[in-house]
Design a binder for these strands. Structure first.
Length: 586
RNA sequence: GCCCGCGUAGCUCAGUUGGAUAGAGCAUCGGAUUUCUACUCCGAGGGUCAGGGGUUCGAAUCCUCUCGCGGGCACCA
């Protein structure tokens, strides 16, 4: 038979195409192949690749699954990349791949280095909105998870060939900004020597506004002090907003997070975008005047039934229609949100992702409804909800009191723990699962700490290379071309296992990107590190498995190619997570 | 009351979107240990996948009901 020569980076994709070709050649070219899976079997003794092809297609082809499987298996045996094939269970086809195939495939990794398995450009325009913390104070622990998640998800999608835009939505329009300005004005008076007493209830009490008070005084002297609020408010607002955003950007820099754009909610109000959006929606019949049923559960004290302007969200998958105009005539936050998501659509983002905190779980449906409605189903929104982070210190949960403004800031957390542990631990859980963030454990340098464990794998590779340099008299990892290594010399089972795991990387990264789940990268890297460390440890008992083998330069160079490849993939993965890949541990 | 998420080993969690005998770390138990700079290492036991019913060749995964935990439930942002 004719072999499928086109090599795909992903071995599973590759073998799927081989199987599809076989079935097509059997005279079934025009059936649906999408349900065919090629994946590693749970049990390694079953081989390297398992496929459900026969079970999935037997109905359409009117055949017994085992019989079909046997026919496909017979053809597979002719493939030189295949060492052995068997049919098992209800009709699984298990493929054992020839060692030479692994070696050939591994040569691609060695040649491609960190970019191994990286898909080509998709030219899909994606926007990821995350953090979007209210600009009324510093970034604190509650924002950190969503920030790290959003940033890494964006990196992951970039790695996968998409055109990704990171955006922060600044809620600078509502009454909270007025409160912020008043709070800053108090600090201004305080700086000028007034006794301001206790910060009144409802104001922002944090010390971080003191420098803002000072700034105002330095710019305007005491001339604001005796003005009416009407006059000083816009002035103070301007200064305090600018100052808050600078503070937030500095905080985010601690995590190496940079946004492509900070999108101002106020501008949506000022430039008429909301009116325009609502006018468009009215024209399309998406808006009506009506009365909403009273909210279920505890009725708010000031509830009054009245007719209001509503968006037909129920037509787009939401549970209830949503109000757009408040009783005082101004727009709701939701109205601005519609204009905002419409704006994203008009900028060409048909794939949108919003990263939100657990307390916003109730908004998912309405946000999705918005995007569908304003784009007339051309654009799609995925909302990722990040669960809470429980901060543990000395084994006890740290509760933070909002009342006194006494929350743990990113700044404090960063000073105590550092960027890499923060980022890794935030990504070492599925986004919907809560995290216990143990202050003490996360700084620990032991196997118990996955950050260290993974970083150490990378550092260990460089350590080995430094030793190789001595053993080989000036051997230089930076310039040596490992594609010259003879990878067929790697025959030990533990070496083959490590190589297989490395070759799994493209599939892991692709799956993580497809489902917007960066945590898969962290878990993969942890497993990779475990395999690598374990192999290193074997060298203690069996010196013949050591990476650097005396008097056998060829074998050593083959092993060094493998070792070097561990660092390529760890580096690629850690880059996505935004965690440093150190050359040595300190 | 309604909506969303979660429920997997003693504990903390994965589980390749429906695949075969459900995995890892910690803890427990049993061994090894003057080391290719660093982290000790190797192995074992441990399960009604919250529970019932259903869909099909096949379910932790999909549907349905029940229980438990968390979050949310006009006009705030």
């Amino acid at each position: 038979m004719q072999q499928v020569r086109k090599k795909s980076m992903d071995i599973f994709v590759h073998f799927k195409s081989v199987i599809v070709k076989i079935i097509s050649d059997m005279g079934h070219a025009h059936i649906d192949f999408t349900r065919i899976n090629t994946e590693p079997p749970r049990d390694k003794t079953h081989g390297d690749i398992a496929t459900n092809a026969a079970m999935v297609l037997c109905k359409t082809l009117g055949m017994n699954p085992r019989e079909l499987a046997t026919q496909i298996a017979d053809k597979l045996k002719d493939n030189t990349d295949v060492d052995d094939v068997n049919v098992a269970g209800p009709g699984f086809i298990n493929i054992k791949v020839a060692n030479a195939f692994w070696a050939n495939r591994f040569a691609e990794l060695v040649a491609d280095k960190e970019s191994f398995g990286r898909p080509k450009k998709h030219n899909k325009k994606l926007i990821v909105e995350f953090t979007s913390a209210n600009p009324t104070g510093p970034i604190h622990i509650g924002h950190v998870r969503g920030t790290v998640f959003g940033d890494s998800l964006a990196s992951l999608l970039e790695w996968s060939g998409h055109d990704v835009f990171r955006e922060y939505y600044v809620n600078d329009a509502g009454s909270q900004v007025v409160t912020l300005a008043r709070s800053a004005f108090l600090r201004y008076r305080e700086y000028l020597g007034d006794d301001i007493g206790e910060i009144p209830k409802g104001y922002y009490p944090g010390d971080y506004l003191k420098p803002v008070g000072k700034d105002i005084a330095q710019i305007h002297g005491d001339k604001l002090k005796n003005m009416d609020e009407k006059e000083w408010l816009p002035v103070v607002k301007e200064i305090v907003m600018k100052s808050m955003m600078e503070m937030i950007k500095a905080d985010l820099a601690l995590l190496d997070v940079k946004f492509d754009n900070y999108f101002s909610e106020r501008e949506l109000h000022d430039d008429g975008a909301i009116e325009k959006t609502l006018a468009d929606m009215r024209e399309r019949g998406l808006i009506y005047e009506g009365v909403l049923p009273p909210p279920k559960g505890q009725l708010p004290d000031d509830y009054e039934e009245r007719e209001q302007t509503l968006f037909r969200a129920t037509d787009w998958g939401d549970d209830i229609d949503r109000p757009l105009v408040k009783s005082d005539g101004s727009y709701t936050y939701f109205a601005a949100d519609i204009a905002y998501h419409r704006n994203k659509y008009l900028r060409g983002f048909n794939d949108q992702i919003d990263v939100l905190g657990a307390d916003h779980g109730g908004y998912v449906k309405r946000l999705k409804a918005i995007v569908r409605a304003v784009s007339n189903d051309e654009a799609e929104l995925d909302v990722k909800i990040c669960q809470i982070v429980k901060l543990l210190k000395d084994g006890e949960v740290q509760t933070m009191s909002k009342r006194s403004g006494n929350f743990i800031t990113l700044n404090e957390l960063h000073a105590a723990v550092g960027k890499d542990p923060i980022r890794f631990m935030m990504l070492y859980r599925k986004n919907e699962a809560p995290i216990d963030f143990d202050y003490d454990k996360v700084t620990e340098k032991s196997r118990d700490n996955p950050v260290f464990y993974v970083q150490y794998a990378h550092a260990r590779v460089y350590s080995i290379m430094r030793q190789a340099k001595e053993a080989f008299n000036g051997f230089d990892v930076a310039t040596y071309d490992f594609t010259k290594s003879d990878l067929n010399l790697l025959q030990d089972e533990s070496e083959i296992n490590l190589m297989k795991h490395l070759l799994n990387w493209p599939k892991v990264a692709a799956t993580a990107a497809e489902f917007h789940e960066p945590h898969r990268i962290s878990f993969y890297l942890y497993d990779l590190a475990a395999l690598f460390h374990s192999l290193w440890n074997k060298g203690k008992e069996k010196p013949q498995l050591r990476f650097i083998v005396d008097n056998n330069e060829d074998l050593t160079l083959a092993r060094l190619a493998m070792v070097r490849s561990v660092a390529y993939i760890v580096k690629a993965g850690l880059d996505i997570l935004g965690v440093d890949a150190p050359h040595e541990m300190r």
